[in-house]
Every structure is written in C-alpha cells, then in structure tokens.
Nucleic acid binder design. Structure first.
Lengths: 337, 337
DNA sequence: CTGAAAGCGCTTACAG
DNA sequence: CTGAAAGCGCTTACAG
C-alpha cells in the first residue's frame, strides 16, 4: 500500500506538505502542489481514511440508526427515501452515511447507540424518533453530540428533530376541497392508535372549525387497513341522507377503497364527490381517476436532516430544535381543477 | 474523552492488557479481566474506532455501492430489502454497512469506488452489478479486494456475484401451471429492453419446450408499464379463438391489469384461466382473487451476500464466483390449489 | 511557503 | 499471564 511518506519521498517534499495538498489547507506553492498531485496520481494514491480520522478526530461519517428488518422497505419505502436524501446531501459534502442497525440480538438499541457514539465511529447521528428515549437524550446532551431525530420524540425533550407536519397537511387538504366548492367534508382514516392519522384528523377538524364547518360524527370513519373494510365504510357514508361531497382519504389504500365505493354508488368524481389522499404511494398509479394528493417530499426531508447535522457538526454552538418539511398539493383528477 | 490509558491506569494494568480484554484475545487472568471490565463500565468507556481501525488495519465496515436517488425506494424497494439483509448479517458479526453513493456530481462511479477502496474506509464492497466494469474488475483483482456484485455483471468477468435466477423462476411458474392442468400457456411481459423480463421469457420458453408445449406467437405479449395497455393486451389475448388457460404475468402491475381483463371477459379464475405472477409487490394486497406468486426472498439474498463477503474478508484464499437465490412458490387463489 | 516532530488511541509481536 | 515499546498513517501547531 502506498502511503503519504511514499508520496513525500517521490515528490521531494515533507509529509506535512503532502497533507496540505490533500486537504487543500494552508499555502502551498502552485509548483509544489502540481508536483505532489502528479506523484499522487502516478502512484494511485488515496490517503488512508482510518489514519486521517484518528489524526483529525473526525470520521467524516454520519450514522443512521434504526431497525432494518426484512420487508421493511415494502412496508415503509418512505423511510428509505429519507435515507437517500441524507446520503445525497452527505456525499455532496464529503461525508458518508453508515447504517447503525439497532436490531442486534440481545443488545438494547440504547446500548448500541451509546457504544457507537462513544467509539466515535461517526461525527453525528440521525435516529428514528422511536428510539429517542430520555436515556439517549442524556447521552447526546452530556457529550454534546450532533444528532437529529427523524420524527418528533414521544416525550418532552430538547433533542433536535425534524418531522412532517401532518396537521398542516390535513389543513391543506381541507382548504383545497373548500376552494373547489365542497361543503360536506368527511374523513376516512385508519385506527385510533395510528398517530399520524390522529394528527391528520386533528388538522382536519381544526380547519373545519376555522371555516365554521360542522362535521357530523358519521363523517369520521376509522378502519383497519383492509380494502374491503374501507369499501364498506365508504359505501355506508355515501348512503347517508346527507352524503358528503368531499372525502379526505388518509392514505392511498383508503383512496383505492373509496374509489371502488364511489364507483359502485354510481357517483361522478369529482362532480358529485371529490376525493383527496395524502399518500401517493403505492397504489396511486393503479387508480382511476388519478387521485389528487397532498405529497410530502421525504427525500428533501432527508436532505434537510443531513444538512442540519453537517452544520451542527461544523458549528457546535448551533442550537435549533425543529425543522418541518412542507407538504405540497398534487392536483389530479379526483378534485375539480 | 476517556482512552485506553485511563482504563489501564485505573485498573493498574498496561494498555496491552486492556486491549486484550477488549478484543477477547490471548490469555488474561479472570481476576484481571474482571477488574478491567469493571473500570471500563464505570468510566463508560468505548474504544476509539478510528484508532483501532488504524492499528489493526481493518475498519470493520463494508460498503454498499449504488446510486441512491430520489424516489428509488418506491421504484425499487427490493434493493433496500437486500440492503436490510446485508445490514442484518453484518451487524450480527460486528461489522457495519456504509453507503457509498455513486451519484456524486462530476465524479465517475468508477473513480468514487476506486478512492473508497484505496482509502481503506472498508474491508470489502458490495456493488450493484450495473457499476461493475472491466476497470472496476481490474481494481478489485489487483488489490485482491473482497467484493461481491449484486446481479451478474454485464460482461465476461471473474468478479464474484450473486443473483436471483429469473430463468429458473419462470420454469417454476410454468411447471406449476402445468401441474394444475393448464395446457395453453401465455406470458405477459414488459418491453424487450427489460433484461429481467427477457430472462423470464427465456425460462418460460425453455420449460414449454421441455414439456413439448407449443407457444403461439400471439401468446407472448410485450407491454409498456401501463395498466391500460396491459388490460388491452390481455383482453385481446382472451379474445383469441383458442384462448390461453394459464397466464404468466411478469410482475404485479401486469397481474392487476390481467385480472381486470379476465373479469371484463367474464371468465372464472382459476377454473377457466389461471394466473401467476412473480412479484408480490406492491399491488398484490389490492387484488382479488389473491394472486399466486413466485417469490424471491431478497432479504436473504442480502444476508447471503454479506455472509459471503465476511468469509472472503476472513479468508482471502476463498474464491467463489456465484451464489444464486432460490425462488419460492406462494400458492394463493389465482391458480388451483 | 515548507518541514521536523509530536501526537491521535489503539494493536501486536516479543520478551519476560 | 503481563507489559514495554514500536508502529499503524495521517494532521497540526509551531518554528523557520
């Protein structure tokens, strides 16, 4: 393996000078620089990362801490879009993203993170908020370790986090339907344990109230993630004496079930019923008419998370707690243009 | 930051001894070991990874080289299931998986990989076969660098690789349909540029030939990935004077389109027409009847890739070129039980 | 603008 | 079973 000493020797300079050329630091005369670069090129040299890490006390690496179990990418590709965004941003800035699998047998996630942090394998960590506990928080604060949670931690915390604003998304959905002339708005969601759904419901109700819109009990439907259930649920809704003319579907499976029900009821979309969903994925491409959707760009959420973390690594005094990714309307054919 | 010297001092031993305890190497008396472990615990010590990497000339890290662009996880969650499998296997063995994003602006993927390999950030590399070029091969061979391609390289190569056997999968599909009494088999696929589809077509034809089954031209349909096209295509097929009684759909979108067409044609599934697809994802959960599918466990392909690479890292004399992941039949309702 | 030298925090033959 | 010491390949004040 060729080392910095080989380069120095061949170029007739000191290793210090080679280092300066490598890192583009301090003044090096153009001639010297050229000479060194030429030798590096000729000998096919790349500086040893471990040695550089040790000397500069930084690994140019960031961890992404989560469980990575079988099938997860099918159940939640969104999470990997975030990872792609993070990787994109980091690689642009000369950093690398390393996965920290919290799924290890016999070891608690907190312990795994603690070891990783203390061993300085990385300069910072991005963690799924599901693994943000008071204990982890204490660790981060004690070491003043750069970190950011994906999602708001489930407890009162001064850790940094970034999240999508589901309440705001629901607001947007309601405003869109109202702007398109809908007046009787219903919401079809998942189960009450579903935190994201409940936030969207909150946003939905808040927006309705702001617009002095009464929402009858029957206009709020909870469902198991089964398209048959959803179909029944929406069919019932459409059979009401005063049926809704605008339906907020909290994901694309619900949109799929709702469209089936609307079709069965022989109602025109969007003339008689307008529909809007939140999640474009995965069923949207299959649906007719093409659903109008509130979309959240999770790749760019990842980019933002990476960007924040790098800033924090460079400037330890930076102290920001939250970022919020903004939702965006994609107008298609289930609401009036 | 607490270092190995602090531990040594507190425990009243040398750093060499602490190192032996950390790495569970060489004989250390039980008493000494306990004492050292106690101090490590008390001081909340974790060995500095960079220093250890440098000293032992190994980073306990493996790279996964690919592009990680926006939306990729929706288009290809399978790839991330592989990554999860790799991560699972590596973390079990004390290794970490680091993403090497080949998408960097202005730099060629080959150059990015070369730098990463030469800098010894990792002890081995897993790369998408799309980025396996003769130049990359030369690098791996020259350095004798542990590597494995995901997918067979597109050129004659002695690199190591692992792949799913699409030809074999298609064989399985045909055998299944024949065993269920189908005699007129059609295949609905993507476009001719689609390498995976073409391999499946090859397997389909080979299996047909082996079973002395003639496949009329009209029984082979190419389609753009648009459910309308597929619907038309299958409708045409079912309108043939001699219509097929078994249809191989090369992915779940095609299965979705085919089921629509079969329904429209008022044919009974699986009595009059049986259908089988390859990809359970993402549309299967939406479909009725539930599709019978040939499934490939990509998580376990990832596990195998990781496992192979670790063995190769430990034993440089190991020289295996290929692994193949085996497909598996999931019997559901679109073929006879 | 350049270089000598110390130091980063470990591991590893080797000697005892 | 334990430790002194060299060494891994860089970076970084500091002196010149």
């Amino acid at each position: 393996m060729v080392t910095i000493r080989d380069i120095a020797a061949q170029a007739g300079v000191s290793t210090a000078t080679v280092s300066k050329v490598i890192n583009d630091k301090q003044y090096v005369s153009p001639q010297t620089r050229e000479k060194v670069l030429a030798v590096m090129e000729r000998l096919n040299y790349a500086p040893n990362a471990s040695a550089a890490n040790l000397a500069r006390r930084s690994s140019k690496t960031v961890l992404y801490a989560d469980r990575f179990y079988k099938g997860l990418p099918y159940a939640n590709p969104h999470m990997f879009d975030i990872i792609c965004g993070v990787s994109h941003e980091l690689s642009r800035k000369g950093y690398r993203l390393s996965l920290l699998n919290l799924d290890a047998a016999g070891k608690k996630p907190e312990k795994i993170m603690e070891e990783a942090v203390l061993s300085r394998v990385a300069d910072g960590i991005i963690l799924n908020c599901a693994f943000a506990t008071p204990q982890t928080e204490k660790l981060m604060l004690r070491l003043d370790y750069p970190h950011i949670c994906i999602g708001e931690p489930g407890f009162t915390s001064i850790m940094s986090w970034i999240d999508t604003n589901h309440t705001l998304s629901a607001n947007l959905a309601v405003e869109h339907l109202l702007a398109r002339g809908c007046r009787r708005l219903a919401i079809i969601g998942g189960q009450k344990q579903d935190k994201i759904f409940m936030e969207r419901l909150r946003g939905f109700l808040a927006a309705a109230e702001k617009n002095s819109l009464a929402i009858p009990e029957a206009y709020i439907a909870y469902n198991r993630p089964d398209i048959r259930d959803i179909f029944r649920s929406v069919t019932e809704l459409l059979g009401l004496p005063e049926r809704p003319d605008g339906i907020v579907c909290t994901n694309s499976l619900i949109m799929a079930g709702a469209l089936q029900a609307v079709k069965k009821a022989d109602l025109k979309v969007p003339e008689e019923v307008s529909l809007i969903a939140f999640d474009d994925y995965p069923y949207s491409p299959l649906l007719y008419p093409h659903p109008t959707v509130i979309d959240i760009d999770l790749f760019s959420l990842g980019v933002q998370a990476g960007n924040f973390l790098l800033k924090r690594i460079k400037d330890p005094t930076m102290l920001i707690q939250t970022y919020t990714a903004l939702p965006r309307l994609i107008q298609r054919d289930t609401t009036r243009a």
